[in-house]
Design a protein around this nucleic acid. Structure first.
Lengths: 228, 228
DNA sequence: TTTTAAAAGATAGTATTACTATCATTTAAA
DNA sequence: TTTAAATGATAGTAATACTATCTTTTAAAA
C-alpha cells in the first residue's frame, strides 16, 4: 500500500492548483530548489521556467507572482508541520511532553522518512528559515491575511497555544509564546549558522542546543517544570 | 548650545557618506519616508530620486543599491538604540532594572524628544519592525557580516547579553536571550498590528502588554525575579 | 581671488525583471 | 470521437536596476 500525503491548500494561494498536474508539481519542486540555491531575491519565473524546461507564461498560469508562490510554499510547510505535530503528539498524555516534542519538531532538521513525492522537506525547512518571514513582512499582509493565506501558520500557532494552556491554564500569553517558539526555532538556527555572535551556539552549531534554550525559555515561563 | 547626535557609521555601508552632505541627508530622510509609505519591495531609487528632486544616478553615488541602503538604515537604528540603552541604563545599579529598561526601549514607540535633525525616529522604528530582518535574511549575509555591516546589531546584542549575565552570571544563553528579546519586541508588535491571531494583544493593541510578556519571559528564565 | 577638484545635475543607454497577449499544439476528459 | 483544457512557442511592454558621460554648480586650497 502506498500512502501519499496530500495537503489541501487554500484556493486563493494559486491560479491553478499545482498539485493537480506534473508541471505544477515541478514548479513547486524546482522553486524550492532554486530559492534554496540562490535565495528568494534572485529567484525569477524566467529562471524557474528554464530550470524546468517550460516557459515563463507557463508558470504565470499557476501563480500570480513569485511572492504568491513563496506564500504557497510557506503555507504548505506550516500545514505539513501542523500535521507532523498532531501525528507526533496525539498519543501523548502529558502536555509538557507534547510541548517538548513540538519544540523538537520545530527546531531540528527533518528525518527524511515520510517522503512526500515532490518536496524535499529538508531543503524546504532551510528555505523557510531564511525566507519564510518574507511571506508576511509586506505592505499587503492584511489583505493577504483576509484571503486566509496565513491560516496554516495561525492554525499551528493556535494548536501550540492549546498545548501551552494545557500545561498551565492560567498562563497569560499562550499565543505569543507559541509564535515566539516558532520564530525563534527558526531565527536562532539562522543566527547560529550566519550571524553566530547573536547566539550562544556558534561554536558547536548544534540544533539540540537551540532545543535546550527554547525548552528552558518556555518551561520556566509557563512554570510547570520539565517533564521526565 | 545645540547638540546634534552624530553616529559614526562603518565606511563599507556606503559609497559616499550621506551624513556629509545635504543630498545625503535627504536620501536617508526620504528613503525612510518612502519605505514606510510603500514598503521596501516597491521602493526604488527612481522613485526616491523623484521624491527628492534629484536623479537616479545621484542616489547611486551614495549607495550601491537599495539593499545596502536598507542595511545602512538598520545599522543606524541599532547604533542609535545602543546609544539610548547606554544613556538610559548607565546610572542604574540593579541589572534587573536595567534589563526592564532595555525591554521598554525596544518594545515601545519613541518619545520624540531627542530629535536628530534628519531622521524621524518613530517612523524609523516602524520600518525596522517591518523591514529590518530583510537586511540580513539574504544569501550574502556572511559576506556582509565579514564587512561588519551588522556590527551595530551585534554590539547591541552583546550589551544586552552583558546585562543578562549581570542579573545571573550562571545563565547559559545570554546572547540568544538577547537576540530573542530584540526580535520578539519587533515581531510581536508586527503580529499584534497585522496578524493578531499570532499574539495575545490583538484586541488592545497595547505595546505595554508586549513589555509585560517579554519581562515575564525573560525574568522567569534567568530566574532573578522582578525588580521593584 | 583665482585655480582646482569634488559633488551634483542632465541625459542616454542596456540588460533584466515582471508581467500580458496570442495562437498553435498536445493531452485528457466527456 | 469530439471537445475542452492545459501546455508550448513566441512576441511585446513597462518598469527596474543599473552604468556611462558630459556639463554645471559648489566648495576648498593656493
Amino acid at each position: 500500500m502506498e500512502i501519499e500525503l496530500q495537503i489541501k491548500m487554500n484556493e486563493k494561494l494559486f491560479l491553478r492548483n499545482p498539485e493537480h498536474s506534473e508541471l505544477g508539481k515541478k514548479i513547486i519542486r524546482h522553486s524550492i530548489q532554486l530559492i534554496y540555491k540562490n535565495g528568494f531575491e534572485s529567484f525569477t519565473f524566467k529562471k524557474l521556467a528554464e530550470d524546468i524546461g517550460t516557459t515563463e507564461a507557463g508558470i504565470y498560469r499557476y501563480f500570480e507572482n513569485k511572492h504568491r508562490l513563496l506564500i504557497y510554499i510557506a503555507a504548505w510547510y506550516w500545514s505539513w508541520l501542523e500535521y507532523r505535530v498532531s501525528v507526533n503528539t496525539n498519543n501523548l498524555k502529558d502536555p509538557a511532553v507534547k510541548l517538548k516534542k513540538v519544540i523538537k519538531l520545530l527546531a531540528t532538521a527533518v528525518e527524511d522518512d515520510i517522503k512526500t513525492t515532490h518536496v524535499n522537506e529538508n531543503i524546504l525547512h532551510q528555505i523557510i528559515i531564511a525566507e519564510g518571514s518574507k511571506a508576511y513582512l509586506t505592505k499587503h499582509v492584511s489583505e493577504d491575511n483576509k484571503d486566509q493565506l496565513f491560516k496554516p501558520y495561525k492554525d499551528l500557532c493556535a494548536a501550540i497555544g492549546e498545548i501551552i494552556l494545557a500545561c498551565n491554564p492560567k498562563y497569560k500569553y499562550p499565543k505569543s509564546m507559541a509564535s515566539t517558539i516558532i520564530e525563534m526555532a527558526h531565527f536562532q538556527n539562522f543566527f547560529m549558522n550566519n550571524l553566530p555572535a547573536l547566539t550562544d551556539f556558534g561554536k558547536e552549531k548544534d540544533e539540540l542546543k537551540i532545543v535546550s534554550f527554547l525548552e528552558e525559555l518556555v518551561f520556566s515561563s509557563i512554570k510547570k517544570g520539565y517533564p521526565g
